[in-house]
Amino acid sequence: MSLDLKQIVSDFKNGLWAENPIIRLVIGMCPTLAVTNTTENGLAMGLATSFVLVSSEIVISLIKKLIPANVRIPSYILIIATFVTFVDYFLKAFFPGIAASLSIFIPLIVVNCLILGRQEAFASKHSTPRAIADGIGMGLGFTWVLVLLGAIRELFGMGSIFGFTLLGEWYRPMVIMVLPAGAFITLGILVGIMNQISREGK
């Protein structure tokens, strides 16, 4: 098995823009909307999801030949659930504040369609190095949109980014931005802008 470096780089880049999970494939929407009320939460969620994605892609691409086709989906879910339990206990032990604000959305990574989707579409068909590249690319693609969304909502909703106040006393926070309604509208406009950008690029 020869390592094709070009192929690996293109697998990695794929997730960042061309097949960005949120903007292009529109999967993994629940955490995207729910935890991006602050930049920090968006970043934490993005990293936690990326970790689970990369780890399970490694395991599944290694053992893909051992899993019978009929029971592959339950097997994937079991592997994913194991890594999620690991992340959950890690966050509870070292970052209790973040664990509390993400609450049930950490265990819900188990049913994030992004992760199961990548196992089915990529890890179960390709070699381990390519699966790692795909996992990191998709994970980063997911993370940057989450951080951007969190930053926009935090800036307009509380006048700060990562907890540092950027807009001074004169700014009256738009509370709607950190509420559910703001999440839907911000993401809707963001996807619209991205569509425009990629249309101009063509």
């Binding site: 509208i185 809707g188 406009i189």
Partner: peptide
């Protein structure tokens, strides 16, 4: 540019 997903999200927001 808003066709499909974006407009659905904005409606959901409202």
């Amino acid at each position: 540019v808003l066709k499909g997903v974006p407009v659905t999200l904005i409606i959901a927001g409202i």
